[in-house]
Design a protein around this nucleic acid. Structure first.
Lengths: 214, 214
DNA sequence: TCGTTGGCAATGCGATCGCATCGTAAAAGC
DNA sequence: GCTTTTACGATGCGATCGCATTGCCAACGA
């Protein structure tokens, strides 16, 4: 059914990566819905609508299955942010990129929420499994770097206060986006509230609107 | 052994609350170490060094045991913050209270870390169990209120920019403290780094140090 | 055409799960 | 002193766990 037509370089067998991604998607749904406790081989098979033997065929151990799950989660948010960035005009400024990425995190879209909740469910594993830790937290540096760059640019443009520490401000911006994203995903606050707070902060730090430069 | 001497108003039986708190402590240790997946009746009994029958005697169901666990977690942080506040001089300012509370959250003390990690482990349950949700997130409003009060006070004192929105700034302060506390507890950053960022932010918003008022 | 391989489904294993039940020893009340 | 209640420890139940094994079937190479 799924491989009745194909154009890949390996036509003789099914698309292994696609199968694994399908199962990893089921892992994410379960993890987001009720935590990693609910993720068993049988539950994943049932969620994906396949047999348990299939799950075992594509993942040698449960640990490997969970690792593919968290990797898919990160690919999903990257993809969603990437899609949003393609809606921006070419050569968009770093600030536009930053605001677009944060808007996606706080957007309260079901898939974004699912990925965030699933990620949080993996936090405990990150303490035990170094690979999970790396997948979950490894990309933080570049995000902070982007935010710091935006602050520096705003300073160079004379919009932001030159007394600001770009590194600290970048760290604050992403920590804030992180915290608000989790709050939205877990229903502690609304998307509108979170976005309003985030925009308020960015506007103040980056000096948008009626704000006299130094 | 445990009730050879007592002074309570009910001398005829053991201290039920103390027993439950002892078991709930074992729940927290397990949850903080490897998530709620690792919390089973048998594991809790083993962690507490008692029989499984004892655990069942004090908690009718696993759900009830978990609920006592998260309640103990919240009482623990409240107690730790309370202890820290007692080290402050009498009639300490709201700002001193705020800074002390945040310092405790970012202090990287083992017990604080344990409580934070355990709390995060409960996030998934909060979506299913309304009681857990309330225990975990119910106190957010008053914390935000304290932070907002501090901002308003700083504005009244002429230290903080009167253009600031106290409610938004209070929300930002606590979201930031929340995020940084989790990062410290899960080893994403160091206590020193988090505290430096938090103090940097508070000093800027509240206008401490060499900062000209409006 | 035939043997080999990949892609599964099915089944079974020992361990562990939450929970219920039973037994018992000590204390409390009459 | 005798009954009742409290505070457990011990054991067992059916379900589920991760994982290993087995078997079948379609697709491919020779």
């Amino acid at each position: 059914m799924r491989s009745h037509c194909y154009a890949g370089p390996v036509p003789r067998k099914v698309d292994i990566d696609a199968q694994r991604a399908d199962l990893a998607g089921a892992v994410l749904r379960l993890a987001a819905r009720s935590g990693l406790e609910a993720v068993s081989l049988r539950e994943v098979a049932a969620e994906a609508g396949v047999s348990m033997g299939r799950v075992q065929h594509y993942f040698r151990t449960k640990e490997e299955m969970l690792l593919h799950g968290v990797r898919l989660a990160m690919r999903r948010i990257d993809a969603r942010i990437g899609e949003r960035l393609q809606c921006l005009p070419d050569e968009a400024s770093p600030e536009q990129i930053l605001r677009a990425a944060i808007d996606e995190l706080l957007g309260d879209h079901p898939e974004t929420n699912q990925v965030i909740r699933a990620s949080v469910a993996y936090y405990a594993r990150a303490q035990v499994n170094a690979e999970v830790f790396e997948v979950l937290f490894g990309d933080d540096d570049e995000l902070r770097g982007l935010a710091a760059l935006v602050v520096r640019t705003a300073q160079a443009d004379g919009r932001a206060d030159t007394g600001l520490d770009p590194a600290q401000e970048g760290y604050i911006i992403w920590s804030l986006a992180d915290s608000l994203g989790v709050k939205v995903a877990f229903g502690q606050t609304t998307s509108e509230r979170a976005r309003a707070t985030m925009h308020y902060h960015l506007d103040r730090v980056l000096g948008c609107g009626a704000h006299p430069g130094v």
